[in-house]
Amino acid sequence: MKDKIFEPRILGFLCNWCSYAGADLAGVSRLQYPPNIRIIRVMCSGTVSPHHILHAFQRRADGVLVAGCHIGDCHYLKGNYLTMKRMKFLEGLLRFAGYEPQRLHLEWISAAEGGKFADTVREFTERIRELGPAPSFEAVPKATAIKVT
């Protein structure tokens, strides 16, 4: 069990119009990418609430990938602008709370970029593999850290 390499669990939120089609293209082009990613199709990357991402980490996801259309290409005109700000905020919040912001990744993948999708998943999986398992949201502090102030 111990010398088995760590297989991260990665959750991907892909937008219906670009990134999901990009992932589909990666599939039909028979591009190889790690099977660690579980994909959820959403109508727009802008519909991904910080709740969804926090809930993914709460349920022991090791990394979360959010992918949407390139800026200016959003099917709903400005959904991905919201995503961009929201993700930047959430990264800052996770960092301040002591969690690794690298476990959160935002990428713009168009319907024609099957190769980019495969590369992104490959790189992201490697990154999470190096980071190791994500700290649990239910973790208790080490005894040395407890100090009532």
Partner: peptide, 18 residues
Amino acid sequence: LEKMTAENRLQWWLSHFN
């Protein structure tokens, strides 16, 4: 808190959140 390392900051917050 910003000055702490990420690990210490996590422990500090956990000691509060718990």
